[in-house]
Design a binder for these strands. Sequence first.
DNA 1: GCATAGCTAGACAGGTCTGTCTAGCATTTC
DNA 2: GAAATGCTAGACAGACCTGTCTAGCTATGC
Lengths: 222, 222
Amino acid sequence: MPETTGTLGTSGTARDRILETAGRLFYEHGFRAIGIDTIIRESGVAKMSLYNNFANKDDLVAAYLSTANEQFLGWWDQMEASTTDPLTQLQVIMDGIGDVAASPGCRGCSFTSASGEFPESTHVAHAVAIQHKNEVMSRLTRIAQKAKVTDPDALAAGLMLLIDGAWTAAKVYSPEAHHARYLSATARVLIAAAAAPVRPARKAVKRQARQSIAPAEQRSAS
Amino acid sequence: MPETTGTLGTSGTARDRILETAGRLFYEHGFRAIGIDTIIRESGVAKMSLYNNFANKDDLVAAYLSTANEQFLGWWDQMEASTTDPLTQLQVIMDGIGDVAASPGCRGCSFTSASGEFPESTHVAHAVAIQHKNEVMSRLTRIAQKAKVTDPDALAAGLMLLIDGAWTAAKVYSPEAHHARYLSATARVLIAAAAAPVRPARKAVKRQARQSIAPAEQRSAS
DNA sequence: GCATAGCTAGACAGGTCTGTCTAGCATTTC
DNA sequence: GAAATGCTAGACAGACCTGTCTAGCTATGC
């Protein structure tokens, strides 16, 4: 039994090859930067094979993101199953994400990128991204609740901020990674503080009145 | 003295109107989603006025980012000047960014978006973004050093992760903001821990061996 | 042996994008 | 008054992009 089908077929169905190729190209160059023709050419598949499997380009983008979401959650499940203590589970997950974000090939988070390239929250790709982030947030919250920390929402939110910060570092600084290396250690501080509530610091910093921020500066923020 | 120039001129030079309009549209819809023709139409300016002031679209994007960078650093200087204690300076800045990120109109960080839409680090827009993040990092580090905390690099990196996490929340969840509201409180934890070094937690979470992450999952990360 | 399903190859339409060019108007400067 | 400067209006070229269509090939199932 030779090639499964077609002339250029390497392996798998046309749909699989399209998804694999499109995912790689989208991740490396961005969703808008990669055209249908490029995906066709790189995957060695006919254009009609793409449009027979996906309604349009947006549908292909959404399919890629859904696949990526499933893979990520699968990886998460493995990490979480590696231990039973909730606080350790959180730390293991943060360590794992830190390792990925700081690795040379990492270009950040596909879902955040999708949100940026398709800013309308009704866009199917943006919607998948929101769904993904919601899932991550609720998983963090659930584990924090299991750990019986004082404020599970605050711990989950803090860890979420760190995670997305690490993905941003990976995206901006790729392939150097930079401060994503500090994800693990910083998460450890938050987790420890949540477990053993912070004693009033010697010099507690109080929130003070600040001047309001002009609209123009909202757009220029870091 | 009537209109300064032109027929549709609202105020300022053509260059100013182009930069203002382009900035607003880029920020709201993305760099690749907005075309030259749209900028022309919205700013009421002739196409040649754009190409007389900017070499090409990339140059316009870079000019917008440079302006945004200057505005942000100006805002930072104001925040920093509002107090003399370094730890309070850090907290004031984090509070300010948290307020902006959690405000309804905020769509995240222009520089991160630029990195995402122009992934090649040699692209002029990506280069400006890197320069901006470097500047923010070095400012955080400098203040942390002034505060004489044990590990200024770690504190600066931790705060940077939080900041970029907040921008991501704003981008993905706009206009709801969500967990960006936790930026201030989470920063307070990190700052307090850095000021009063963490006592070994009752149940310290140790880093444990983990299975490696398959390349396929690197792309699917949160 | 024949129908069906999945695929290929490539032309094509219609739209959009960037960037150039021409012709001419209005204001300022010398 | 003349030159220079900054701008407008819009046509235009050439590239690229999405999505459709036709024609035909190949393997499988009945």
